[in-house]
């Protein structure tokens, strides 16, 4: 997949008026976040690592992301979102049980740990979690569909799209204070925003049938 904003790096704006002190601090810490130890067992961590890679791959030719470390931190702090279906346990327990069940599912289907199976096989299991077609008894009263929809997917994409590499790859302006934006109308952008590469632009230009 071509990166439509190949010349753009949101981090290059770190020392411009687009970032305030607080934001620099927050993003610096995020980029430096290490995977907390003793939060997950080795197998759980290996399973989570593959899930992150399959569900939220890093954009090619961009600095590696810290998504895995953010999820582990969330589990370590048992951080909630302010709501959960009554059949889902709290964040940490929910993740640990889900990871164990996915590992068990891999062993049942492929006789091999989730971290060691082929990517296609990992995807097959993840699709099965998504649609609730699971065999492992470890799921117990934890619904795979609910786990996927209310825990796994939102946690993963929220952490992944908190990464500057992903902001760059999607052409997002990134942090914006004190400097915001001036040019607000379609097909206009400020010099401190991402420019879209011409080639990908035309492939996106699906409809030009209204005026301008």
């Amino acid at each position: 997949m071509a990166d439509p904003f190949s010349a753009y790096d949101v981090l290059a704006k770190r020392d411009t008026p687009s970032w305030n002190e607080r934001t620099r601090d927050v993003i610096d810490k995020r980029l430096a976040l290490a995977i907390a130890e003793n939060v997950l067992g080795d197998t759980q961590l290996a399973t989570l690592r593959v899930i992150v890679a399959r569900v939220c791959p890093d954009p090619p030719d961009r600095p590696a992301t810290n998504t895995l470390a953010m999820i582990v931190r969330k589990i370590a702090e048992d951080e909630g979102d302010g709501y959960r279906p009554h059949t889902l346990p709290r964040t940490a327990e929910c993740w640990r049980r889900g990871l164990d069940a996915i590992e068990d599912e891999a062993r049942l289907r492929f006789n091999c740990g989730f971290a060691s199976i082929e990517p296609d096989q990992a995807d097959e299991i993840l699709y099965a979690v998504e649609s609730g077609k699971m065999c492992s008894e470890l799921w117990g009263n934890l619904s795979p569909e609910l786990f996927w929809k209310w825990r796994l997917l939102p946690d993963l994409v929220s952490s992944h799209w908190a990464q500057p590499s992903l902001w760059s790859a999607m052409g997002f302006g990134g942090p914006a204070s004190p400097r915001g934006y001036v040019r607000l109308t379609e097909n206009r952008h400020d010099p401190w925003e991402a420019s879209e590469d011409a080639a990908t632009n035309s492939s996106h230009a699906l409809s030009q049938d209204h005026e301008e």
Binding site: S18, W19, N20, E21, R22, T23, D25, V26, I27, R30, M70, S158, S159, A162, G174, P175, A176, S177
Partner: peptide, 9 residues
């Protein structure tokens, strides 16, 4: 001084 330009934070 307390607010960052960041969804997660």
């Amino acid at each position: 001084e307390d607010f960052a330009s960041d969804e997660q934070e």
